[in-house]
Simulated assay, not measured.
Amino acid sequence: MSLSIVIPALNEARALPATLATLPKQAEVIVVDGNSSDDTARLARRWGATQITTPPGRARQMNAGAAAARGEYLLFLHADTLLPGQTARLVTTALQHHHWGRFDVSLQGRHPMLAVIGAMMNLRSRLTGIATGDQGLFMRRSAFMAVGGFPEQPLMEDIALSKRLKELGPPACLRQRVITSGRRWENHGVWRTIWLMWRLRFAYWRGAEPQRLAERYR
């Protein structure tokens, strides 16, 4: 199998089936459960995914999934994110010319600002060469190994990995979109969440400890 899809999950029984239904049949699928208290692990197995369990922590879970994967290419996907059609072809084609890449993203929800937020995330990613986990990060296994995988920190692990991967080359920025849930934005308030995320990113850029930022994020 040339493509392995790694999905870290924690109590995602509600969102996971829809995500699994969009995955390319030719890909290896690994769901890494962080000791969920709901049916996440059982649902993953029922859908035919390889299911492994680790202590919770998104970076730790994704690293464990990558270690278990057999594919030449790795795609890290949030449990509430839907992939576009022809994902396997898009990823494998992009990785013929790049070490890594990501998709554009659309945030799903009722609030009209979610479309603006998604557009700004995509623009910022193109300008900076930094991608987030919401955008479906993918890479060659060799690139993932070369940078040491995800740093096992409680927040901003995707930003940290992007910075490492940029040293190998710029990302492939695919215009095909993944659709990810805007539930956090709506549950916590869109404007409040925008302000919080910008403050956290600025603090991280200034060198703040990820553990302290994670406490503020919760």
Rank of each mutant, 00 (worst) to 15 (best):
L123W: 01
A115Y: 01
L95K: 04
R124H: 11
G48S: 05
A41C: 06
D33P: 06
A67E: 14
T22D: 09
A143W: 07
I159T: 15
F103M: 06
A214F: 08
L3R: 05
W205F: 13
V178H: 01
A64Q: 09
G182H: 06
L174Q: 04
R206A: 11
L137E: 00
P24D: 08
D134K: 14
L213A: 03
H97P: 02
E209Y: 02
G207Y: 09
A214T: 01
G109I: 01
Q51K: 10
R14C: 06
P210M: 10
F138I: 00
S106P: 01
E186H: 05
H99W: 14
L107D: 00
E186I: 07
L90E: 06
D134F: 12
A69H: 00
G65I: 08
R199Y: 00
V116Q: 10
L23D: 01
P17W: 08
V147K: 13
D33A: 12
R218P: 01
G136C: 13
V6W: 09
N11Y: 09
T132Y: 10
L10V: 13
L137H: 04
A15E: 12
L3S: 10
T193C: 04
S125M: 06
A146C: 08
V116A: 15
G129E: 12
W195R: 15
M197H: 09
P210I: 02
R218A: 13
G148L: 06
P171D: 00
R110M: 03
G101A: 10
E72L: 09
H97A: 15
Y204H: 15
L196F: 04
H78V: 09
E28C: 04
A44P: 00
R175W: 08
G149M: 11
G148M: 08
L196I: 07
A18E: 12
E215R: 14
D134R: 15
Q176M: 05
E152T: 14
D80K: 01
A27E: 04
F76T: 03
